[in-house]
Design a protein around this nucleic acid. Structure first.
Lengths: 145, 145
DNA sequence: CCCACCCCTTACCTTTACGTCAAGGTAATG
DNA sequence: CATTACCTTGACGTAAAGGTAAGGGGTGGG
């Protein structure tokens, strides 16, 4: 009640973008992790004085970073990957190079896709068998971690 | 020519199974890596004296290990995973636990599957755009690493 | 016999991706 | 003005997954 113009909380007085803490919460990371990504050149947020200000574009990049991580890419690989996205400068040679990298990555991902599907099949089979096995022993299901 | 009973080479005199070097070559790993997996309890090959002897079962396990690695699992996770495969002892409680773990892993993999598919879509789009862009500039394709 | 080649173990080194203090700045609030 | 809560940089710690070196054994071939 009775706040000048902001809305979310303290530290959101940074004009428009989010703070590192907010972003961390949003993406379920720690601020440390986000700063680390910046160190590695994956992010380059604006600043208000010393304080980082994350705008929508940064949030988009971070989302891509997280996906990359879930897919098992290294930070360095994700950096390359991100560079693909912003390649629109017109540097033809570099672009051809990036297209090549993109194709290679696609091939790797397609392999991974098959791996995942195969593993899922195996696991489903195993769990099915085991569950049935248990059922035959007349035991009810009760999932415990 | 003129060998008693073996066939492949020296050190294959280990009756039937493969040596660590052969296995390493076969799976494109180093012997060090295979020994490391053994250290971590993922493999337990037979021995002829001090020398490890890898039988087909070990090869199968190693194949699963490699797939797990390609999927981004940690060694410890792969160990749990492998334990799923040989769970047939009848320990019901343990089996229920393992079924739970298996289900969790399936959920994680399904998420990963969607991630991979989404990323593939994005990448294909990007490469397509970039390629077309290049084509418009009248440049032929020549993939250089 | 000695060399080459493969095997063994032990032990320390490296890289990646953060976690964990430490020490200090800044802005709203009581 | 002091507190509180968030932010900053910097430096050190650590777990995972091996690499690499050191030291030793066995076997077969010239």
């Amino acid at each position: 009640m009775s706040r000048s113009g902001g809305d979310t909380d303290r530290a959101s007085g940074v004009a428009d973008g989010a703070t590192i803490g907010a972003l961390a919460t949003e993406f379920d990371l720690t601020p440390r992790t986000i700063r680390y990504y910046e160190d590695q050149g994956l992010l380059a947020p604006a600043r208000t004085g010393a304080q980082r200000v994350y705008r929508p574009e940064d949030r988009a990049r971070l989302a891509l970073i997280c996906r990359g991580k879930r897919l098992g890419f290294t930070i360095a690989e994700i950096k390359d990957f991100l560079d693909l996205y912003q390649a629109g400068d017109g540097q033809v040679e570099q672009m051809r190079y990036l297209v090549g990298r993109g194709r290679a990555r696609i091939a790797a991902l397609e392999l991974q896709l098959r791996d995942v599907q195969e593993t899922l099949k195996d696991l489903n089979g195993m769990v099915g068998t085991a569950t049935e096995h248990l059922r035959r022993l007349g035991i009810e299901e009760g999932a415990e971690p």
